[in-house]
Design a protein around this nucleic acid. Structure first.
Lengths: 341, 341
DNA sequence: TATAAACCTGTGAACGTTCACGGTAAAAAC
DNA sequence: GTTTTTACCGTGAACGTTCACAGGTTTATA
């Protein structure tokens, strides 16, 4: 694995290494004839500039750190796909760090990322509201590291947040059920303490207020986003409120679990109970019945995050900023179309 | 963002930079007292060794390239999670490259990876049997780059393949249906040309031969792994063979799509038609009815891949090698328990 | 024609680390 | 008491690139 260096190219081309450097960096100060000659030699020798050496001197690595929590979740994989696409367009790479939602491992990840040549960090960890300690992140911000988080985090340092408007999403979902005539609308929330879960619940309350429907805490059960938790939460809810007519579930996974519980309990969907999910997973339209849901622009979110990160590397310390994208209502069979009796 | 270097540590500690280097690399030739003193200074100054400079001189980067095709697919995300976990244990990072299954972009990805400091490449692209051109991969192998592919590829150079035994998986799935007494067993295959699709079909034929059931090509419909393709393929199949009693679908996604088609066509599952999926996605047990399937050890596969890659960086050119993991049958409601009438 | 300005090119140093080697002092061997 | 070994530590060079600056042509301006 012999490496060909800039000096090899220079000697073959009969110019100085600096000229070669200028050519490969598209510096204007080089004669057109020289440039083409050098480029020819570059091709002949199959020369590739060494990114390590380049980073060492420029301190502008073309690499971002990507710290993700629930990497296996569809939402985050889609965000990453979008981010990677945008990064690629601008010749950036992502270095992968998967914490698997173990907060205690996070400082270690940040430390390791800091040793790597990263120009910024994309932080795609979900956001429990009361995360024990963010000191390691604040330290990094203090040192001027550009940071974009998808989903809100309670940080004081200068960073950028991108997210989908969860209040609006909860509002759209609940309003759709309200407009179908439902008055006893249950809700299965996401993991308690998460910003997304809280915001979607705010949207739910807002929709109820609009329709002057009283808010009944008994209609709400917490889940943890998983299929299984939706199943269990629905069971608890039905035991307490057997005459429920509609159910807003804060994730499609939980909604599918909940629908399994409803079927088992003998309810038919949407005739007895209308169900509304959240996320628009690919499986949603093949669930039984096809699941009405709130679509989130996940890849766009990632793309936006990456593009803001790239901006941040160019004009550092641009201050705190938040960008929200808008969700969209997708109507399918599970929410019915007519008011209940 | 002031950087503290090895020389800063050295001058603060009153030793030479070389001594500091020895300390942070755990070299034995340093007095215990000196070592502790230096480590104290390291902590005080919050010194982190610069990986870029280190790589430049050692040429042993702690980074792997990860080139993935269908990044959004559950299978591959799980593989990546496993691989990342193993990499982390050994202080390796992955650099992400997502080709989104566009073969024409691949050479570009390989080129870019080659410029980055990568010690090896994990290639998690799915494997159409007749991929147009693998020259860019062969070139890399010739230059001695360690390569591990998950899923088979038709490469001549020295590399390592890890995969799950798809023939065995197809055998287990089909045999389960045979043992329940079925004789007219349909199959929806994955994307034509993929090794996995072909191998699972081989397992299907093997199971039929065991039971001396004739192989009827009309019972087979191709899909492309997606929900939608399972839906469509099942519709085509039912139109041709209305008295089908069992169906082996080569992915859970397609199986869920197919079950939607069966329901729409008025069949009940498993009474009229038994269904067997493949993958054991989390959604499988919350499908309606709960989906029998073949579980693949995805994270283990990734872990294995990473560990073999790490080995390969230590003893290069270990030749071609293939490691297969074994799948497992998961029985749920969709395949029924009694023979059909 | 002399001079200034543009254009192009080359040299030394630096980025932060490790490697190869050499050196000094203390401890062990004769 | 001299020599040899051992243990520890430091200096110069290198990795492959870019940056700052200085030099040399050629072209444009006075």
């Amino acid at each position: 694995m012999k490496k060909v260096t800039i000096r090899d190219v220079a000697s073959h081309a009969g110019v100085s290494y600096q000229t070669v450097s200028r050519v490969i960096n598209n510096h204007p100060d080089v004669a057109e004839q020289t440039r083409e000659h050098v480029l020819q030699i570059v091709r002949d020798l199959d020369y590739h500039p060494n990114a390590t050496a380049r980073n060492l001197v420029t301190r502008k690595p073309n690499t971002f750190g990507l710290i993700a929590g629930d990497f296996g979740e569809y939402f985050f994989t889609q965000v990453i796909i979008g981010a990677e696409r945008e990064a690629r367009k601008n010749d950036f790479f992502f270095m992968l760090g998967i914490t698997e939602s173990k907060p205690q491992d996070e400082p270690e990840y940040f430390r390791m990322m800091a040793e790597q040549p990263v120009a910024g960090i994309l932080f795609a960890r979900p956001s429990p509201k009361l995360w024990p300690d963010n000191q390691h992140i604040e330290d990094l911000l203090d040192r001027g590291m550009p940071l974009v988080t998808v989903a809100y985090h309670n940080l004081t340092g200068s960073h950028i947040v991108v997210d989908v408007d969860n209040i609006q999403g909860g509002l759209l979902a609940t309003r759709c059920l309200v407009e179908a005539g439902h008055r006893r609308i249950g809700m299965i929330t996401g993991m308690p303490g998460w910003q997304a879960a809280g915001d979607r619940a705010l949207g739910y309350r807002k929709a109820l207020e609009e329709a002057q429907i009283p808010h009944v805490p008994d209609l709400i059960e917490p889940g943890d986003w998983s299929y299984r938790s939706g199943d269990l939460a629905a069971q608890r809810l039905l035991r307490r409120i057997p005459d429920l007519t509609a159910l807003f579930v804060q994730s499609d996974q939980m909604a599918i679990g909940a629908m399994a519980a409803l079927r088992t309990a003998g309810y038919s969907i949407p005739e007895d109970i209308a169900v509304m999910g959240y996320d628009d997973l690919p499986v949603a339209q093949y669930a039984y019945p096809a699941l009405s849901t709130i679509r989130q622009p996940m890849q766009e979110l990632g793309q936006l995050a990456a593009s803001l990160l790239i901006d941040a590397t160019k004009n550092p310390a641009s201050g705190k900023k938040t960008v929200l994208l808008q969700p969209e209502l997708i109507r399918r069979d599970s929410c019915g179309t007519r008011p209940p009796p």
